[in-house]
Design a protein around this nucleic acid. Structure first.
Length: 861
RNA sequence: GCGGACGUGGCGAAACCGGUAGCCGCAGCGGACUUAAAAUCCGCUUUCCCCUGGAAGUGCGGGUUCGAGUCCCGCCGUCCGCACCA
């Protein structure tokens, strides 16, 4: 009986051998074609989770295959090491964020090494180290100098207990996610990156990303949100109406400086306008509120609550009549009342709209509430003038009740109104974007310090580059809420680099998305004295294959695209799209185990480690009683369905774990982690090992070219190469199983021995330790990582016999073997002569015969 | 509400261009080996029936075609993203 494959020994042996040979070191000066394979770098939370294992295994298969195919491969790893969890750990456990983070990195690095990934560890980086963030500060200053960084006041979610800004995702039901305090909307001075300068470019660039998922491109397109329309000015009329709840107006005072711009995507519906509305934060609203307590109260009411989506949803449309009216731009005799309305957003367009109730649902709701006129101006083709009830009409059609526009289509109407507005000088065709500039200020300690000094005399002064990096102080405390940098006794006090007077450091740090916006460039080239060496970086970039979770489809990928373009814009690099190929993999899921705890109480969940799972049921180890097996869902701490890869690495070995995460599910879909699945993977590892072990003593010599096994082998080479290219690892694995079965059945022969050697090469990207061990057992020269990828012989890919299906009226009745390329007549004759077919036709001659060469015959009776 | 993806055995899934639906794995059933078990190996496994065969079958209803999982039209369901975006 052959000895079993010993994963502990093999992993140790080959990981040491690869290390000693520096097998995965990427050579900048290699003459070979370059391939940059990258997986999204992890946040060092403490432990590698199954999602990481899946992500990095996929990348590893690509990297190893490319290497075997003769590419110089760059496959690096690093740590997205700044961020809030480190500060939370500091607050909860009294540890320093830096120590906590670096300990986590050490633990996770060991776990990744244990999985045997083909990574170039010499390029490892952590964003929390000054060598990295100092260079980021230099790039920030470059962008500042180029006018792509600016400071502005903006509304933020402010947590009054934790004394910090919260992202929208951190506001839950209007309360801070940590403190539970009611979130306020505050205006704060914040640093911004001018991503909107590149809106058009970022949108156009999506069209060049052929190797990105369509879904991600669409998500980015929607996020950028280009809308074309018209911007025009409303003149405020002299004759003020009597307004509700306002003091007797003085018309001349009211009019002064109160004309305002609106944006619309539907200039064609202008004759359907029945009101105008301003955002509560609009400057005119605010100025009117100074003398109008009713309006001031209304604005205050609108401001209550956070900026989160949940707060906005379902809110009733409300307005406040300002008493002003504006003049309709196409007919000066028409006056429209001006409201301040809660559904108008200051951040989009101009912060003011014209309302056309017949063709916009929100405007219609508003008009019904305030008894404003509703006039249809677009009618569907052939359907003249039905009244509008409670549903606005937004479909296509022709214009009605619109004077010079009558009879035009919607598109023609838009063009006509814009042409007229531009000719008369009261409006212009224009484009607005949903995308906003990127606010990067965070009132946090554990992030890249923004390299700016505030001087009372000189204003905003960049830290001179010679003084970089601005290093985070280590002696900080987290015993009170707020930003420790701001409270630090000395750190922020510096002399102004320009005038030398006492000044103050910026105490905000950069959003961690900045850190991840250029790490792939630093991997390609990471000199000590500058962010990157342009020549070397450009040899590797763009990343050929980038792999990560779809949750980064918008923010990270958009920011990285922007940052790269910004660097190109200031002439530091010629690459504009950082990731040529993108793949978004699915999540790893697991079933849940629970026991009900009575009505209205959440069930009690148990972790997979606490449960003994048999094929049909599961019992709790502690008491031997059954637990309920729940749905297969994303791993989460609250449902306790998280598994730790370490235990599996110990029991089954890296190769079995790697094989399992690649098998069964297509990589873009979710993968259900199961012990049964890993058992299957471990069995396969032993089967392959047994083949290698037996083949070591098998006869060597000349192979039989007609051997069926040889044909299968070459078909498998071709298929697996194509499957890996398309990242269809599940299909590659199904084919490997077929090949393994076929070899097992084949008698010992030189062909069989060669098949085993090739099999080891084909599965080496997935199970590298096993492959090396088998390669050595078979006495092959060197290491399998240095062996060239097998090439399929085209002559062996075509069969000389094919199966011809015979259908009667489209239904399969019989099939037979025929020589490949046999003439139609031969096939037809054979089909008609088959006993089953004669019976099926029941003596009748077929009316029509369809012959598809090498495939089928269909007889139409 | 807008945009998108998906729907195939008990489960994860295959199926090139419209051409034999269900490769491969998991689970299950039967058998061999064994004192026994594990491990391993062999076989079966879409459903139904009047079982040497036949019928139905890829969410539902239509259509195009000699032929549809695949193309077209209309529904239903699930998931994802965005959302008072003017």
């Amino acid at each position: 009986m052959a000895p079993k494959f010993d994963h502990h020994a093999a992993e140790a042996r080959w990981q040491a051998a690869w290390d000693a040979a520096q097998s995965y070191r990427a050579d900048d000066d290699s003459p070979r074609p370059k391939a940059y394979v990258l997986e999204m770098f992890p946040y060092p939370s403490g432990r590698i989770h199954t999602g990481h294992v899946r992500n990095y295994t996929m990348g590893d298969v690509i990297a190893r295959t490319r290497r075997a195919q003769g590419y110089e491969v760059l496959h690096p790893m690093g740590w997205d090491a700044f961020g809030m969890p480190a500060e939370n750990a500091a607050m909860e456990r009294g540890v320093h964020p830096g120590g906590w983070t670096r300990d986590n990195i050490a633990a996770m690095r060991a776990q990744l090494k244990r999985l045997g990934f083909a990574l170039d560890w010499s390029r490892e980086l952590a964003t929390c180290e000054p060598e990295y963030y100092g260079q980021e500060q230099a790039l920030f200053l470059d962008l500042l100098e180029a006018g792509l960084v600016y400071r502005k006041e903006s509304a933020v979610n402010w947590d009054p207990v934790d004394m910090t800004v919260l992202a929208n995702e951190q506001v839950i039901d209007g309360r801070g996610w940590r403190s539970g305090a009611i979130v306020e909307r505050r205006r704060l001075s914040q640093w911004f990156l001018a991503i909107t300068d590149f809106a058009e470019d970022l949108l156009a660039g999506l069209g060049t990303l052929a190797d990105w998922p369509e879904k991600v491109r669409l998500m980015q397109e929607n996020w950028i949100g280009k809308s074309q329309g018209m911007r025009f000015t409303f003149q405020v009329a002299d004759d003020a109406r009597a307004a509700t709840d306002s003091p007797t107006p003085d018309p001349s005072r009211m009019r002064e400086g109160r004309n305002f711009d609106v944006f619309t995507t539907r200039p064609d519906t202008l004759f359907g306008a029945s009101f105008a509305a301003l955002a509560p934060d609009h400057p005119i609203s605010l100025s009117l509120a100074e003398t109008n307590p009713g309006l001031a109260a209304f604005i205050a009411e609108c401001r209550a609550g956070g900026t989160a989506t949940a707060d906005i949803e379902g809110q009733e449309k409300k307005g406040f009549d300002t008493g002003l009216s504006v003049i309709h731009p196409l007919d000066p005799t028409i006056r429209l009342p001006v409201f301040v309305a809660n559904f108008v957003l200051m951040d989009y367009g101009t912060g003011a709209i014209f309302g056309c109730p017949a063709h916009d649902q929100r405007d219609l709701d508003f008009a019904r509430k305030y008894q404003l006129p509703v006039t249809r101006v677009v009618a569907p083709e052939g359907e003249a003038d039905a009244p509008i009830h409670n549903e606005a009409y937004t479909g296509p059609g022709r214009l009605v009740h619109s004077r010079f526009l009558d009879g035009l289509t919607v598109e023609e109407g838009k063009a006509a109104v814009i042409a007229r507005a531009e000719a008369e000088g009261w409006g212009t065709g224009t484009t607005v974007w949903r995308l906003r500039d990127w606010g990067v200020s965070r009132q946090r300690y554990w992030g890249t310090p923004i390299p700016i000094i505030h001087c009372e005399v000189c204003g905003i002064v960049p830290v001179p580059k010679k003084q970089l990096p601005v290093v985070l102080p280590e002696d900080v405390s987290f015993d009170v809420p707020g930003n420790p940098l701001d409270r630090h006794p000395t750190w922020k006090h510096v002399d102004c680099p320009q005038c030398g007077k006492a000044a103050r450091r910026e105490t905000d740090t950069l959003d961690t998305f900045v850190d991840s916006s250029w790490y792939f460039i630093r991997f390609a080239s990471g000199p000590a004295d500058q962010p990157f060496d342009r020549r070397i970086a450009e040899q590797w970039l763009p990343v050929g294959q980038y792999i990560g979770g779809v949750e980064h489809a918008i923010l990270h990928l958009l920011y990285a695209r922007f940052w790269t373009r910004a660097l190109a814009h200031i002439g530091r690099i010629s690459v504009t799209e950082p990731f040529a190929g993108l793949f978004t993999q699915g999540m790893v899921t697991h079933e849940t185990y629970s026991r009900p705890q009575g009505e209205g109480v959440a069930p009690l969940y148990f972790s997979p480690a606490e449960v003994e799972r048999s094929s049909q049921s599961a019992i709790l180890k502690a008491d031997g009683l059954p637990v309920e097996i729940g749905r297969v869902i994303k791993m989460s701490k609250s449902k306790k369905n998280v598994v730790d890869p370490d235990a599996y690495l110990e029991t089954y070995g890296a190769d079995a774990v790697r094989w399992f995460v690649l098998s069964d599910s297509p990589p873009e879909r979710d993968l259900a982690w199961s012990d049964a699945g890993i058992d299957g993977a471990a069995r396969l590892v032993q089967r392959i090992w047994k083949l290698a072990d037996e083949a070591a003593d098998a006869p060597q010599g000349v192979m039989d070219a007609d051997d069926k096994l040889l044909r299968l082998l070459h078909k498998t080479i071709a298929a697996i190469t194509a499957d890996i290219d398309k990242l269809q690892f599940n299909k590659a694995i199904a084919r490997l199983y077929e090949l393994v079965s076929a070899i097992e059945r084949a008698p010992a022969s030189p062909t069989r021995r060669q098949a085993v050697i090739t099999l080891l090469q084909l599965c080496a990207p997935m199970v590298p330790h096993l492959a090396e061990e088998g390669w050595a057992r078979l006495g092959q020269p060197g290491m399998i990582v240095d062996a060239a990828w097998p090439v399929a012989d085209p002559a062996l890919l075509v069969d000389d016999m094919v199966t011809i299906a015979v259908q009667v009226n489209g239904k399969l009745r019989d099939s037979f073997e025929a020589a490949k390329g046999a003439p139609r007549e031969t096939i037809e004759a054979e089909a008609l002569a088959r006993e089953k077919i004669v019976r099926a036709l029941d003596g009748k001659a077929p009316k029509k015969v369809i012959v598809v060469p090498d495939r089928l015959v269909n007889l139409v009776a």
